[in-house]
């Protein structure tokens, strides 16, 4: 069954393959183009470096007029990631635009890893350590980088 959302997702996938952004990858699951698996590699020169963080992206038939639900499957320690893996990022909520595609979503989340926003915390411990005890913050992040190799 082809719907506008599904056709758009086919184009997103094509673009992701033809013009892959550095450090992210993603693909639809085998039997459902509305659910994708993705991986974001921790950006260089950040405590997330070398991590391989897995995510799921769930689209509705309203895509691209409504954003997908994006969630980390890998355990994350980040000021803007909730305990359940949900992500607090404006462009996935009230600043969504239908001109975004999977490529743009994944690169935005990748840059959120480099530049957390501790003033809008989803994990208050991570936000507090990020602001007040960077050494401890980096230690906790490194632990989840290690964890990301296993899960």
């Amino acid at each position: 069954m082809s719907t506008p959302a599904r056709r758009r997702l086919m184009r997103d996938f094509k673009r992701l393959q033809e013009d892959p952004p550095t450090g992210v990858s993603g693909a639809p699951t085998d039997n459902n183009i509305m659910i994708w698996n993705a991986v974001i590699f921790g950006p260089h020169d950040t405590p997330f470096e070398d991590g391989t963080f897995k995510l799921t992206i769930e689209f509705t038939e309203e895509y691209p007029n409504k954003p997908p639900t994006v969630r980390f499957v890998s355990h994350m320690f980040h000021p803007n990631v909730y305990a359940d893996g949900g992500i607090c990022l404006d462009i996935l909520q009230n600043r969504w635009s239908p001109t975004y595609d999977v490529s743009a979503i994944l690169t935005s989340i990748q840059s959120l890893l480099s530049d957390p926003n501790p003033n809008s915390p989803a994990n208050s411990m991570a936000a507090q350590l990020y602001k007040e005890n960077r050494r401890e913050y980096e230690k906790r992040v490194k632990a989840c980088v290690e964890q990301s190799f296993i899960d």
């Binding site: 719907t3 506008p4 056709r7 758009r8 184009r11 997103d12 673009r15 691209p64 239908p98 001109t99 595609d101």
Partner: peptide
Amino acid sequence: GICRMPFDGCCP
């Protein structure tokens, strides 16, 4: 920019 289809084609 919304559907990513060519302008010379039509919307989905």
